[in-house]
Each structure stands twice: as C-alpha cells, then as structure tokens.
Amino acid sequence: MTEPLLDIRNLRVSIPTEAGLLNAVRGVDLRVTPGDTLCLVGESGCGKSLTATAIMGLLPRYAIQKHDGFAICGTDLSHNPNSALRKLRGTRMAMIFQDPTAALNPTLTIGRQLTEAVMLHERLSRSAADERAIDLLDRVGIARAASRLSLYPHEFSGGQRQRIMIAQALMCRPSLLIADEPTTALDVTIQAQILSLLKDLQDEMGLGLLLITHDLGVVAAVATDVAVMYAGRIIERTPRAELLRHPAHPYTRNLMKAIPNPGVTPRGEPLPSIPGTVPGLIGDMVGCAFRDRCAQALVPCGQDPLPSRTIGTGNRHSYECWLSDEEDGA
C-alpha cells in the first residue's frame, strides 16, 4: 500500500467564544493516498472548511487545535506543526479556495501571483518561472497565456479566475491538493468544466485531492471516497459507489433522499427534507449529534461511545450508529 499523502488522526478544533468553547471539529480522521479523491461532504457549519484550514495550518491564532497524529507527504507533523507546515505549504501541498475573486490579490498581476511562490521555493529565475506559469495556464485552459501574465484578476471572468487559482496551486508541483468548495462560487456549466479539469490534472500528475463540498453532485462526479461530516464528526465514510447505492447512516440516507431524481421523485410534491436544525456545538457533546433529528433514534443514541460499524467488502464502508445495517430497513 502506498504511503498516504495526508494522514491525520483525531483532529479537534475549538474556537473560544463568549458563550464557551465551541467544538467545531470533534475528532476527525482523514487519509488521502496518491491519485485518490476524498470528498469531505457536509452542510454549512459542520466543520469541513475548518478541517481543511487546520490541515493547511492556517487556522486563526485564537483557534485551539489538537490531534493524535498528523503526517503530510510522509513528514510527521505531530510535534512541530507550524514550522514544518510552512515548508510544505505551496511546495508539497496547495489549496484552492471557494471564491477565486476573493482569493486572488486584486492589486497584483496574475503573473506575479503565479510565479512568486515558485521563485521563492525552487529559486527559479523570472523567465523560468514565467515559462512554467504559461505552461500551466495553457494547461488549465487560459488561452494566449504569455500575453496575459501582466493582466490583473479583475480582467478575467470568474471561471477563468478559478482556472488561474488552480494553475497557481499547481505551480510548485504539489502532491496533495486541498480544494475548499472550488466550484460553489461558479455557475453550473463552469462548475462541470472546472471539475473535469481537476480530474484530468489529477490523473496526469497523480495528485491526492481532498475536495470539500456540500454538493452531492460534485461527489458523484469526482470522488473515489467520501467522508460525510455532521456537527464536527465524520459519521460515515465509504467508496463513492457504495454511498450512491447504499448509504448507511440515517443522516446520509436522508441527504440522499433529498436529491431530486428525475423519473423517480414524484412530481408536484415537496422534496423530503431533514426536520430540525444542527445542534449547537458549544461545550461537550455526548452521544450521536444527529439523534434529535433522527426518526430511528434509540435509547442508547444518547450515550458514548458510539459503535463504529463496518459493512460491505474490504472494510471500506464504515459508519457511526447504533442501528445495524440489517435493522435499518433500507
């Protein structure tokens, strides 16, 4: 088995607030191997973006981060994460942000933004760095790249800006790419283009991709594995095909039911939705975070620890629930 590009165990992130400690990420394990796309799925506020930010080492200063093991590209970061992470950022791992308009500096040319990291990390000359930028821009579908290095971000469209962001992330030839909702700010046709571009680039370069999204359509399009996150925990992890065919956790099953499916979903009726709201994350939480919204909640759902069940072949599909696969009636 190849060495994972990202291996993080029991990641916890807390934010001090006036009402108390907000435990936004409550024990997350993630592994990404070369060539894989792990989709981290969940609704807004479930902690998926904070998880990505923590992996990049870009959490705000007031956030409290803990883990039981943290390695990126074979470098153990358990003990001295900050200085080691700084060396890995931009070189071995790179990040793509949700809103390319906000993530590109409006006052610097795209040429400067693309090349500055590679000139610093690999000591490339300006002309060599320009050449690589032109190659990559070409590759991500920005035509006439050579003449456009001197342009500013506002002179490109939203889809082009995200392509530029992707090129920027790939400038130092990273092994691990973290994409935080890379298509959310784009319109649907551009979304599909960007996703297929990401997939092509990944095949070409053998990238490990951690893709964060709330869009199950994105998951269906690109994921190899899926981790479903709810209220700061990963409640189910599974290969993509399994998720679509056989979601196991009640939350995941409800999510899948809420997707309109032409020909199957009855017309003229409201789509099913999950009643209730996400629980508050301030203070300690005991038991399953989903139990107040779960139609199948049992007595032990309020207790710790939750059983982790494995189903299917190869132990690759697991979920955290008291309901066994047989009694769920799915």
């Binding site: 950022r89 931009g90 942000f97 906000a102 993530a103 590109l104 500096n105 500055e116 990291a117 610093l120």
Partner: peptide, 26 residues
C-alpha cells in the same frame, strides 16, 4: 482577514512577504 492573504500564506510565503507584498498595498 481576506482570502487572498490566506491564499498567500497557503502558497508558503513567509509572513513578511505576505504583509509587505500582498496586504499593505491594499
């Protein structure tokens, strides 16, 4: 607090280059 400053850090730029090169200008 802007995304492009986070993006500059994500590129692995040292803090002084992010502040003088990216942030101050804006």
């Amino acid at each position: 607090a802007s995304d492009y400053v986070r993006a500059a850090y994500a590129k692995g730029l040292p803090a002084h280059r992010v502040i003088w090169g990216h942030a101050l200008r804006n």
